[in-house]
Amino acid sequence: MASKTLHRTVRQGLLGYSSRWKLSPTGRLLKNDLTNSRSNHGQSATASGTPYTPEQSAILSAALSHVPTQGFSDSTLLMGVKDAGYLDVTMNLFPQGPFAIVNYHLVTQRERLSEYANSDEWKDLQASNQKFGTTDKIRALCVERLRQNKAIIHRWPEAITLMKYPANIQSSTSELFNLADTMWNIAGDTTVDVSWYTKRGILSGIYAATEIYMTQDKSDRFTNTWAFLDQRLADSKSVGSTVGRVGQYLDYAGHNIVNVLRSKGMKI
């Protein structure tokens, strides 16, 4: 029994989980369990509740209201602190400085997107369109999220600069990934194969690129931005299927190697 466990560990180490082992009656991980745990993980990123205390929210939302005129700066944060009725020294609550405002915007807008998914507007959109596929849903969600940047888009390059600081890059990238995760969950994607990562990775890239494009977009009602988004999504379809095929190939090749070694008498 012990050797069997060892074999499984080795195979998993070499090739990752495959559905054959997941479904094996002796395996501890049955497919349903795995699916549940994955989708729960996805939800936890979206439904875990706001990480901000009411006082922090009061300060940061007040600061955010000054962003269109003041940008993302220390003085904006100070205005937020004063508006919320606190002292100059209360600025120390935010060791990351003005990045706290950027992050607040990212987190609250992501949470807002989850609420949007429960709104009538979203349901109507789905009902009115017979062929409302996953890609259409992703596009609609990207557009909905990007619209929330409209008021501050002329200041957004400052936010991008702050997000790229070495001290902040981890929070900003993980927040971007959380956003992609939220979008895929809303779009109803529950697959748990290798594409779980590639889907989120690719969507993160598309979203970030479109957001940067939007900062420079002078067209009426951001029509160029939506066109740009459509092109990126079209590109990703081919990329996505290529990645999928590469994954399939590796899985196939890996099994073949194991089978060849077995045929040589190796106990794997």
């Binding site: 100070l78 004063k82 002292l87 100059d88 020294v89 120390n92």
Partner: peptide, 15 residues
């Protein structure tokens, strides 16, 4: 330096 003591604007009270 990190605590940055002192009032930050003319509208603030000294600390």
């Amino acid at each position: 330096q990190q605590l940055n003591p002192g009032k930050k604007s003319i509208f603030s009270e000294p600390m």
